[in-house]
Simulated scan of single mutants.
Amino acid sequence: MKKMSSNTELTSEQTAELLSILKNRFDKNMHFHPEIEWTEVQIKLEANPDKLRILNEMENTGGEPDVVEYDRQTDKYIFYDCSAETPKGRRSVCFDHEALESRKKNKPENSAANMAAEMGIELLTEEQYRKLQKLDSFDLKTSSWVQTPSDIREQGGALFCDRRFGHVFLYHNGAESYYAARGFRGLLKV
Results as ranks from 00 to 15, higher is better:
Ser102Thr: 09
Val190Arg: 03
Leu55Asp: 04
Leu52Val: 07
Ala181Lys: 14
Arg163Gly: 00
Thr8Ile: 13
Met115Ser: 04
Phe138Pro: 00
Val68Trp: 07
Arg164Asp: 11
Ala112Pro: 00
Lys44Asp: 14
Leu124Gln: 11
His167Ser: 10
Val168Asp: 09
Pro87Cys: 08
Glu46Met: 15
Ser111Phe: 04
Leu135His: 09
Glu59Ser: 06
Ser144Glu: 02
Glu37Met: 14
Gly183Cys: 09
Glu85Asp: 12
Glu57Gln: 15
Glu46Thr: 11
Asn56Pro: 05
Val146Pro: 04
Gln14Gly: 06
Ala99His: 01
Gly62Ala: 11
Phe184Asn: 02
Gly166Lys: 10
Ile43Glu: 14
Cys82Trp: 01
Lys131Thr: 07
Leu10Val: 06
Leu187Asp: 01
Ser12Arg: 12
Met119Arg: 05
Met115Phe: 14
Tyr80Pro: 05
Thr61Phe: 09
Lys76Ile: 01
Phe32Glu: 07
Glu154Asn: 14
Met30Ser: 12
Val168Arg: 03
Thr39Glu: 12
Val168Phe: 05
Glu126Gln: 11
Asn29Tyr: 09
Tyr77Met: 01
Asp27Pro: 02
Leu188Trp: 01
Leu123Asp: 02
Leu18His: 02
Met58Trp: 03
Asp136Val: 07
Phe169Glu: 04
Met115Gln: 11
Asp162Lys: 10
Leu135Val: 04
Glu109Asp: 14
Thr11Gly: 09
Leu188Thr: 01
Leu55Cys: 11
Phe184Met: 11
Val190Gln: 05
Arg185Ala: 13
Thr74Ala: 09
Lys107Glu: 08
Ser111Met: 10
Asp81Val: 08
Leu52Pro: 13
Ser92Thr: 08
Gly186Leu: 02
Leu100Ala: 10
Lys76Val: 05
Ala112Val: 00
Gly166Cys: 09
Ala180Glu: 15
Lys104Thr: 02
Lys104Gln: 03
Lys189Asp: 02
Tyr171Arg: 13
Leu55Tyr: 06
Asp139Glu: 08
Phe138Asp: 00
Lys28Thr: 10
Thr15Met: 09
Lys76Gly: 02
Met58Thr: 00
Ser6Met: 00
Glu46Ser: 06
Gly120Leu: 07
Asp75Tyr: 11
Tyr179Pro: 00
Ser20Glu: 12
Phe184Leu: 08
Glu127Thr: 10
Lys107Trp: 03
